[in-house]
């Protein structure tokens, strides 16, 4: 596989859509997601021999991609100024009902608008299913930070939904 372009291409075609979907969730924009995807697949080919056959191959690939996304964001964090958003209270019943009308692309764009830390924690906790302890280990933050960032992420997401639907608070 390591030197066989045909096999590499087949592997890429098999997993690129799923991988790009993950990358887009972690990235700020599509350009960054493409960079993440490129970096992730180069790493997959390079470290393919480390897959020991424990668990499914697709879940191994998923883990590598998620790990790669986190590292990428860590290394590129300086390029964007993180805006600390105050913890406002946006929650309304109207916001909750608005979710059901949203397309996947809209949801994705909302996630992309979250600040880096919030987005990472939300993705890892809500979508990947990691615990706060695991997230804290992965991101090198305290568990309490993980919890608070998740809370803020949720609130921001709700706020974004309200804005997108022009809901009046």
């Amino acid at each position: 596989m390591r030197g066989d372009e045909k096999c590499q291409r087949q592997l890429y075609e098999l997993y690129c859509e799923e991988a790009f979907g993950i990358c887009r969730r972690y990235a700020r924009n599509d350009q960054e997601a493409e960079d993440m995807l490129q970096s992730a697949f180069v790493n997959i080919y390079r470290f393919l021999h480390k897959f020991e056959g424990r668990g499914s191959f697709s879940s191994w690939i998923r883990k590598v991609i998620v790990h790669n996304c986190i590292v990428y964001l860590k290394q590129h964090r300086h390029m964007y100024r993180t805006i600390e958003i105050s913890d406002q209270h946006y929650a309304t019943e109207a916001a909750d009902s608005a979710f059901s009308n949203l397309e996947k692309e809209d949801l994705l764009k909302m996630v992309q608008q979250l600040p880096d830390g919030y987005r990472e924690v939300f993705n890892l906790f809500a979508i990947e299913g990691y615990s706060h302890r695991e997230i804290a280990d992965k991101l090198g933050i305290a568990e309490s930070t993980s919890r608070s960032q998740l809370t803020k992420a949720r609130r921001l997401l709700r706020n974004l939904v309200i804005k997108s639907k022009n809901l009046v608070l």
């Binding site: 799923e18 493409e34 490129q38």
Partner: peptide, 27 residues
Amino acid sequence: LDDYFRAQLKEYRSTPPSKVWDNIQSQ
């Protein structure tokens, strides 16, 4: 909220532009 996002986005797939593979290949 978590369940909703998970249901919508966990298996979310998106087709990357072809230039990504070209870049990977050249790398």
